[in-house]
Nucleic acid binder design. Structure first.
Length: 603
RNA sequence: GCCAGCGUAGCUCAGUCGGUAGAGCAGGCGUUUCGUAAACGUCAGGUCACGGGUUCGAGUCCCGUCGCUGGCUCCA
């Protein structure tokens, strides 16, 4: 019964999703018509699919679009919608299609692809040779597989909005023409559109770059360089608390801690294969007395050297080497983004070395450990991806990939996490599991990665002496659970909107004396709380209490402790929370208990 | 890297037609001593991203460089 209900709900979702897809796809066509009219004879249309939350269409135009253009296009779209023109589908031959789109080179290319049955509109191979269909509404005809709504009037003119423009390569290929993409969104109702726009605004309010500045967490300096993060005391504290917590968990989980340098000789990176497979992400070598050294893009080769520093017995395994290792990777300037995409970052990295028979257990353990850690930071929803071999970018023989890939899949099954297969998305050295978390706005962020590696133990000749007295090759697993501290902090900031749970808050409480005569008592209270381990300040600025509360609110400090004559008289504090809640007077003792409880509970 | 847009005080932003740079907040100093989201006054703060050009004169127009934003591509 319950199953049935669930399935019914799912079908309803699918149907709604399909209907929204039709609406968005149709809105894209209507937008294309408006653009064609704006640039008669000059606009070249490429593709315009529906996407999550909206649609886009790519154009080649004689000039750049302005925000005013978007307004005009939007206005024209509403007219077309109100015209209530039917969408008419027609199947045509390839030659007929070519004639229809003779002045549209991108469409001609698509038709060629369709005719060969080789590729679809994204350039992806298709299984069967598709029929060529066109859709017409009003004066506009597009090469299109559909589906569409029946009439333009099906679209709610109050629920459509053009958002912004961006450059996009034809078929995503940077060697090809750069087109102008217009992004838009479309919904069933104006309320849904409002809701979506509100979500965009909320995302902007939570933007970690904005909060990073407002809460004085970190900065990026032009003089240091792009993609290189400077952690300020408060951001540094949040990071340190996070790292300390993770270190303690790692220690309890049987990890050993190692440290390695930031550079290593070119020979090392040749042996590891990074110079073959990862060079485009590595910086130019540093010359030291005629030897080339590279800034490390990964920590693994160093950890392998530690493994190799002595003969290992099967009794020593598994070995788990953990390091908060700072790595440097070249990223093209256009992709850098706050803390989420940087050029220098610190991974919570570890390498597991184990016997083949231990491997399933190790993978189970690390997966469980990963989920446990992420839950401790307030994440509840996860999506797993199993990335398989990429034939163009893979070390070793295809057969070598089979067993590890299956081992990871089995681990996912055992952990009972829903997962998807990412065909061909593996690293060059082996298959992997990537884990994404969903944040408070249900946006997905990739944090964790668990990567099997059968190449490095071989390349570096790792061995252990087995029970049989012979040498064997250990299995190796790379894993980063929070991923990079930079990205993780960025995601945390956005997840909590800057209102960190108490245990992570850089300042947990601020004591607010109402007038100067209360400052001394405020200091005594703060001292007591600080002695108890709370991170607490006294706001003794020459300001009114209201201003001090406002300061604390904007800094998103969990506890505000107002003290005045009444509190001094009975040795209490008046508690206010950043939610605006006002629990009022409590004894210092009671407050300490409350705080301790919320800190321990990661509230 | 590519396309488009942007870059004025620590932050948010004005600055008209090319005519010698302005506000609020933040900061310093003073007054005020206040009960749950901004007291009042005063002072200071600028190589208008950087470099070049046009001009009698450039924050403003042109070129280049750097950086940022939205995307494309790629990833922790």
């Amino acid at each position: 019964m319950r199953r049935e209900v669930a399935m019914h709900a799912e079908m309803k979702d699918d149907h709604e999703e399909a209907e929204l897809h039709r609406i968005r796809h149709s809105a894209a066509h209507i937008m294309a018509q408006a653009v064609m009219e704006m640039f008669p004879g000059e606009a070249k249309i490429a593709i315009g699919p529906p996407i999550e939350d909206g649609f886009y269409y790519d154009f080649e135009l004689p000039r750049g679009l302005t925000p005013e253009d978007l307004e005009a296009l939007e206005k024209r779209m509403r007219q077309i919608i109100q015209g209530d023109f039917p969408f008419e589908r027609k199947v045509v031959s390839a030659s007929e299609a070519r004639r229809l789109f003779s002045d549209q080179p991108y469409k001609i290319e698509l038709i060629d692809g369709l005719e060969q049955g080789g590729v679809d509109e994204y350039g992806e191979p298709t299984a069967v040779k598709p029929e060529i269909s066109i859709y017409t509404h009003d004066s506009f005809t597009d090469l299109c597989r559909g589906p569409h709504v029946e009439r333009t009037g099906r679209i709610n003119p109050a629920a459509v909005k053009l958002l912004h423009t961006a450059g996009a390569y034809w078929r995503g290929d940077e060697h090809r023409q750069m087109l102008q993409r217009i992004y838009g969104t479309a919904w069933e109702t104006g309320e849904q559109l409002e809701e979506y726009l509100w979500k965009l605004e909320e995302a902007a309010r939570r933007d970690h770059r904005r909060l990073g500045r407002e809460l004085d967490l970190y900065s990026v300096s032009d003089e240091v360089g792009p993609g290189l993060i400077l952690w300020h005391p408060k951001g540094g504290l949040v990071r340190k608390i996070s790292e300390d917590y993770c270190r303690a968990e790692h220690a309890a989980g049987g990890y050993d801690f190692v440290y390695s340098p930031h550079i290593g000789k070119s020979q090392l990176w040749e042996t590891s294969g990074h110079l073959d497979w990862f060079r485009e992400n590595m910086y130019s070598p540093i010359d030291i007395e005629g030897q080339h050294y590279y800034l490390k893009p990964m920590n693994c080769p160093f950890h392998l050297q530690i493994y190799k520093s002595q003969t290992r017995s099967y009794r020593d395994l598994p070995l788990r080497y953990a390091e908060w290792g700072t790595v440097y990777r070249y990223e093209r300037s256009g992709v850098l983004h706050g803390l989420l995409r940087v050029r220098g970052f610190t991974q919570d990295d570890a390498h597991l070395f184990c016997r083949p028979d231990q491997m399933p257990v190790e993978i189970d353990r690390v997966l469980q450990f990963c989920l446990q850690l992420l839950r401790a930071f307030g994440f509840r929803e996860f999506q797993a991806y199993l990335a398989t071999r990429n034939p163009d970018k893979a070390a070793g023989e295809p057969e070598q990939w089979v067993a590890p890939t299956e081992a990871l899949r089995a681990a996912l099954e055992r952990a009972q996490i829903s997962y998807r297969i990412d065909e061909g998305e593996a690293t060059f050295y082996g298959p992997k599991i990537d884990l994404k978390v969903k944040d408070a706005l249900s946006r997905a962020w990739q944090l964790s990665t668990i990567q099997f590696d059968f190449t490095l133990p071989e390349r570096f000749g790792l061995t252990y002496v087995g029970e049989d007295g012979k040498e064997h090759q250990p299995y190796m697993i790379h894993r980063a659970l929070l991923g990079s501290m930079e990205r993780f902090m960025g995601v945390l900031i956005e997840h909590f909107g800057g209102s960190f749970p108490v245990w992570l808050s850089p300042v947990q409480a601020v004591v607010i004396p109402i007038a100067d005569r209360h400052v001394e008592y405020a200091r005594r209270v703060a001292e007591t709380l600080a002695t108890g381990g709370l991170r607490v300040n006294v706001n003794d600025r020459n300001e009114r209490m209201n201003a001090k509360i406002r300061d604390a609110q904007t800094q998103k400090i969990p506890y505000m402790l107002v003290v005045g004559d009444k509190e001094i008289a009975n040795g209490s504090v008046a508690l206010r929370l950043r939610s605006g809640e006002n629990p009022g007077p409590v004894s210092i003792d009671a407050f300490q208990k409350r705080a301790a409880q919320e800190i321990a509970g990661h509230v």
